[in-house]
Computed example of a mutant assay.
Amino acid sequence: MADPISSDVKARRRLSRQDRREQLVRVAWQLVREEGTEALSLGRLAEKADVAKPVVYDHFGTRAGLLAVLYQDFDARQTTLMDTALRDSAPTLTSKAAVIASSYVDCVLLQGREIPGVIAALAGSPELERIKRDYRTGFIEKCRRVLVPFAGDGEIATASLWAMLGAADAVSEAAATGDISAGQARDELYETIMALVARSLHTRASPGIPER
């Protein structure tokens, strides 16, 4: 008599906890891509992934927990892409600036239109907003460490780094929605980074206006 349980169901049941989590994350991204962030719920994810609801709740707990995991997944890939490219790049400002620009834009484009919706959803919860801010602060500090050797004896202003991040978000999202090309996004962000360092050098060289 044939086994009534199909081989693919058996395979799903054999997944380790980590493999199951990775599968659910992949399906969640697919769901966001196909139906939008608004459609993302634990119940809908369970249906899409063809698993029982308790399995999804066991991994993420709440919708907010799922959104946090998706953002962390995106950030981890962005970090890996950038760290690898920085390690392999030449020790020059032009090379480092190009790596930062291309890594940021390319990671958003690899994720497609899903990530802007997830980032927007994070703003609906103070806890999720804190998670997003922590990761973004980490990115800014990494950029500071990479760029400050090219600022002479000066510092890279924190406000300038936040402005750079705002520009990175804007041009990456515009490229993801097709309003500009990927090349335009990379070039604009590259020029923003170069200007940031040049401004730091200028500020160091200029005594500024004395206080009265």
Rank of each mutant, 00 (worst) to 15 (best):
141 E>L: 15
20 R>C: 02
121 A>Y: 01
84 T>V: 12
93 L>W: 06
98 A>N: 12
40 L>Q: 06
121 A>N: 01
107 C>Y: 00
93 L>I: 09
73 D>Y: 06
60 F>P: 01
6 S>C: 09
90 A>Y: 03
86 L>E: 05
103 S>P: 04
27 V>Q: 03
175 A>Q: 08
147 L>R: 03
208 G>D: 02
48 K>L: 07
52 A>H: 11
131 I>C: 08
31 L>V: 11
116 P>H: 03
143 C>M: 14
11 A>K: 15
196 L>M: 11
20 R>G: 09
206 S>F: 12
116 P>T: 03
48 K>W: 11
192 T>L: 07
199 R>V: 07
85 A>K: 04
59 H>P: 00
124 G>V: 03
80 T>A: 15
27 V>T: 14
110 L>Q: 13
58 D>M: 09
204 R>G: 02
116 P>G: 03
188 E>N: 10
93 L>E: 07
117 G>A: 09
51 V>F: 08
202 H>C: 02
152 G>P: 03
144 R>D: 06
132 K>D: 04
17 R>M: 02
122 L>K: 02
18 Q>F: 11
205 A>T: 10
97 A>K: 04
3 D>E: 15
67 L>V: 08
135 Y>L: 15
42 L>A: 02
6 S>Q: 12
185 A>R: 03
56 V>A: 08
63 R>K: 15
2 A>G: 01
28 A>E: 00
